[in-house]
Design a protein around this nucleic acid. Structure first.
Ligand SMILES: [Zn+2]
Ligand SMILES: [Zn+2]
Ligand SMILES: [Zn+2]
Ligand SMILES: [Zn+2]
Lengths: 136, 136
DNA sequence: GGAAGTGGTGTTATATTATTACATACTTTC
DNA sequence: GAAAGTATGTAATAATATAACACCACTTCC
């Protein structure tokens, strides 16, 4: 079994990551703050600083169109390429996937343009299968 | 795609669209508000309401990762499919393009998943050709 | 040992982005 | 004209994010 060295998380980072993992879906920074008040969190910066690191480590993704954050859905958050997200506007469910062919095409575009790509945001908004089939 | 006849703009919509066109790049809602104070704008809602309509008409795009808005770069804002944006983090330049093959692949993914797609966000962050070649 | 550097934390205050709520006016439709 | 729909103006507030400063723990280097 290949063990990717997970970074050693600080107390606050571990608390924030735990909140997101337990939630099983996206949370805003302020929602995390409220969840962690009983753990001693008092200010938004405590959340944002932890999130910055977790995003840097690839363990958490930021959803730009929601201003929210979600734990990476991959087991152990093994490193993976750019992720895309399908966000259901009815139930709030978020599906993460890695559209490698899409990424490849976008990279080709950037190379043709001389654009140096740092990071890519792909977010699909719509209605998930369950919510479509539900009458309400 | 949806056929948008070029709609008749109201006074406020025309002012907001003019600001974005003149800017030639992305502006935040509050930057637009400041530009239009001399035209009688007093409150953010005047901007946001106009932007809502302009986005609906397809004449303006929202850049989720910037919380900003940009006039569609297509002449006369002719109808086009989902757009993607390459955003230079040095100079702020935004290039709009329509990666049809990428959109096609993403649609295939949503169809396989039973996800009903409403809208798609694709934003590339990085450094444009000019800023890479510049020493500073 | 001690200085300097680095990274995490705590706290207050503030900046930035977006919406709610309510009132007024005008137009279209019946 | 009444009703419905759309655009507007204004004040207040909500939601999201950062700046500034202080303190502590640890390491590195002399
Ligand atoms: Zn992931
Ligand atoms: Zn759903
Ligand atoms: Zn466009
Ligand atoms: Zn540039």
């Amino acid at each position: 079994m290949i063990a990717h060295a997970q970074p050693e998380l600080t107390k606050n980072q571990a608390l924030v990551f735990g909140s997101l993992s337990d939630a099983g879906g996206p949370l805003t920074a302020y929602a995390i703050l409220d969840l962690l008040r009983e753990n001693g969190f008092r200010a938004p910066l405590q959340v944002y600083r932890a999130l910055d690191k977790l995003v840097e480590y690839g363990m958490v993704h930021r959803l730009e169109s929601l201003n929210a954050f979600v734990a990476c859905s991959h087991k152990g958050c093994a490193e993976h390429g750019t992720a895309a997200f399908a966000i259901c506007e009815i139930c709030g469910d978020v599906s993460e996937f890695t559209p490698d062919e899409v990424i490849k095409l976008l990279k080709e575009w950037t190379q043709a343009e001389g654009f140096t790509l740092a990071r890519t945001t792909i977010e699909l908004r719509g209605t998930c299968r369950d919510c479509i089939s539900q009458p309400n």
